[in-house]
Design a protein around this nucleic acid. Sequence first.
DNA 1: CGAATCTTTGATGCCGTTCAACAGCTGTGG
DNA 2: CCACAGCTGTTGAACGGCATCAAAGATTCG
Lengths: 248, 248
Amino acid sequence: MGERISTLRVSALKSSCQQCSLSNLCLPLAVSDNEIDRLEDIVQQGRAIDRGKHVFRQHDPFRSCFAVRSGAVKTYIISDNGEEQITGFYLPGEIIGLDSMGPDGYSCSAKTLERSSFCEIPFAKMEELSQRLPSLQHHFFQLMSQEIKNSQNLSILLSKNSAEERIATLLLSLSSRFSRRRLSATQLILPMPRHDIANYLGLAVETVSRVMTRFQRQGLLESHGREVTLKDIPALQSISHQGQCQKG
Amino acid sequence: MGERISTLRVSALKSSCQQCSLSNLCLPLAVSDNEIDRLEDIVQQGRAIDRGKHVFRQHDPFRSCFAVRSGAVKTYIISDNGEEQITGFYLPGEIIGLDSMGPDGYSCSAKTLERSSFCEIPFAKMEELSQRLPSLQHHFFQLMSQEIKNSQNLSILLSKNSAEERIATLLLSLSSRFSRRRLSATQLILPMPRHDIANYLGLAVETVSRVMTRFQRQGLLESHGREVTLKDIPALQSISHQGQCQKG
DNA sequence: CGAATCTTTGATGCCGTTCAACAGCTGTGG
DNA sequence: CCACAGCTGTTGAACGGCATCAAAGATTCG
């Protein structure tokens, strides 16, 4: 198999998946050190980019997936009238671009919600390496399968659940994703404005605001702008689940 | 794992992807005849099963994906209260089970909407063969990526669009999927009852019925139970897309 | 300070749900 | 043959959750 990139160049860019604190989220491979080395050879760690910048744009030629290293990202689709339809929020350890492996370029745009950094995973090289590392291939199948599941759960949330259920579910999802990174599960700083929450959940901004206020009056949480403290997670879970369906 | 089927048996069961009229939908591989042969060795063509039977059940151990050969399937998740939440409809040439490659078994149940037959694609063998056939691996990445996209589009449909927009979109989706199979794009026989359409689109059955009636009064279609004739596809497209334009 | 963005609160009305009834079709069994 | 039950699809009336419109506070930043 003709490797065309000089080992020296690649080594200079080489990141360190082994030492990365997110490796158990992003690429929890049951592979040998030798195999991790080869993975690191293709993954390129980029510099941080400012809030509000694009990681990639819809219809750009698809070349890479990106693992979020720090910060937060929203992905969205632009409709005919130029409005955005947010399809997901991504936190450190999560991967964007898995929906863009078709022939039509990136299927959505990705924009940072705060200053963020990424690990770039060139798709062609990932495919090639997957030919030699069955566990890498297996991992990507699992990642993509999970992404389908997540999106299906979102569809169900949006089609069957009330505004309160949607918001409680999102807060709990963020909470659990923060805590996976050893951050507080109760003291959240939301990386996105209310407007984005509303867009993502198919609600009006006013409704999001009202529900948050209601939750606060009921003692379920305290909210000061982007700072949210969950005070009664069991109650929120009960609200979230009374619209049924199990979450990942 | 114990191989229980002799090579001879497999050959006997062996399907014929090359001759299958759906092969351009299901596995449009740019592979040599020799490679197709190896694919056919792992794909097992099953007998038809009756309407209302399960192809697999949620939480069953995941072993295979299934390509629909004939008939139609709905996939759904069972919620805490025992109600089903339909996540998708699948027609011949489409593949179910792509969302179930995680460690927790099938993530949904799949039930036939009419008498249907399938090609079974054992996951372990597919993974193994993908190690040797880059184009097969690439194809599955694309298939799964498309499945993510489909589910995201559904999320947007459900979160932002009115009942009329949702129903017009579903009818047009079915129409285009029928016509890909060289069936009429205008004379549809819906494989699913109104109840399932409503469930899938997050609407009440009554709303589906009313909207269909309204479409009929406007001359956009004619509907007699499951038989639907689309009379004005451009108008339906305009309704379907106006969710991406402005509401008025 | 003032401009822009973000967040909250209030008043009004629409769309779709809910409850209820009915009609068509199929199969079953006396 | 008819009576009956079950499933499917249609239609009507009234309620309610959430969007919409409007506007004022809160926060950030040049």
